[in-house]
Nucleic acid binder design. Structure first.
Lengths: 212, 212
DNA sequence: TTAGAATTCAAACGATCGTTCCATGCGTGC
DNA sequence: GCACGCATGGAACGATCGTTTGAATTCTAA
């Protein structure tokens, strides 16, 4: 295992290859556990390239998040806007706007699956700098969804709603990171598997959120 | 922050002080992120004491888990046995047997709160050695609970049950680690807060598990 | 009291960490 | 062709990592 098998074709840019390798290695070994030497070896670039292009390891971590979260949260907000524009919509619609884009990412042909595991790690870590970065860049997304949830769950007071949204987001993060025992059945395509997963997650979360 | 403020009273044994400090530092910085020098400084013991008493850092991690999980899983199995001995019991009872002991630990006056965060990290990490350790020592607990869940959810086939149990365990781990926004209300005691949390978690999980 | 085991201690080991330096290669405009 | 700026290369920096060593100390039992 001395060569770490450079997975990235060398015709992509240095920055992109570093991001790809960092993402998958962070998913496996964590932020502290994956070294820049592992990352640069996997990306087949020079060790100094990380500090040249990203400044520091800390900033590399941020950029790994930014690359995926910018588009992911755009998709979520677009999906939410489409829901809110409908004449009638319910809890399952709002949940779908949050879940489906993330689940699509977690099953994308590129490294999206690894990224969702990285995302789950970010929740597990209580790293202040990372939390501040995520809050600074994406808190408006959570705000809009919280407001939408409050709209479709008018019988819950604010305290109760937060309780349940907290549990839901934990469950969804966990499930989308593909922790645990769920395996795709052999008679299903990836697409079918993803749709089934979304269906399960939404139904499950909706049941918990709605219950008296 | 050069002294790391030894939190452990020196009248406890060296092994115990190391375990206490390791647990809380692993919760904050992760297994790779917390160094043995931090641990021994916080425990106010010599650096070499870890390798003397535990052999290696890897084994120290295992012992951090063993100390808490042995009693936690005993309590869970005892609670489950009590449920199964009742003439009639339902899903909420089985869930309670799983949730309440863990929630009690997470709110115990000693370092239990930190341990649950460590436990959440163990789920986020895909460390093979750690997963093997947990499986080797505690898989019988999961087996018994899975069987009990199957009993109270006869309308779900095995595949569907696993789906849902996976989501539930993720949600519970997340919630019990006290991630997220839930804060104890000022007008509540710890005990009240714990009971309320257990109630929420059980109701939420039950709703998701039961839904058609 | 004293021999021997158990524990603690300071110090150092080699390895690896993130980062920096500076020379070298390479592409584009003059 | 030449010079300039961006990118990459190898090599080393000081710091910190887990671990080991061997002597000093404390505990225990005869």
């Amino acid at each position: 295992m001395s060569k770490e098998s450079g997975l990235n074709a060398p015709h992509f840019s240095t920055k992109q290859r570093i991001l790809d390798s960092a993402e998958s290695l962070f998913a496996i070994h964590g932020f502290a556990g994956a070294s820049l030497r592992q990352v640069t070896a996997s990306a087949q670039v020079n060790l100094a390239a990380v500090n040249y292009h990203f400044g520091s390891k800390e900033n590399l971590i941020n950029e790994v998040f930014r690359r995926r979260l910018d588009s992911l949260n755009e998709e979520r907000l677009a999906a939410l806007a489409a829901v809110l524009n409908q004449p009638r919509f319910g809890l399952e619609d709002v949940l779908g706007a949050f879940v489906r884009p993330a689940l699509a990412l977690s099953m994308a042909e590129d490294g999206g699956a690894g990224f969702v595991r990285v995302l789950a790690r970010a929740f597990a870590e209580h790293n202040e700098r990372l939390r501040k970065f995520l809050h600074d860049n994406y808190s408006h997304v959570l705000k809009q969804f919280a407001s939408a949830f409050a709209q479709v769950l008018p019988h819950l007071d604010k305290q109760e709603l937060y309780w349940r949204l907290d549990i839901v987001s934990g469950a969804l993060t966990y499930a989308m990171a593909d922790f645990g025992v769920i395996k795709r059945r052999a008679d299903m395509s990836e697409r079918q598997h993803r749709d089934l997963a979304a269906e399960h997650l939404i139904k499950f979360a909706a049941a918990g959120l709605k219950s008296a």
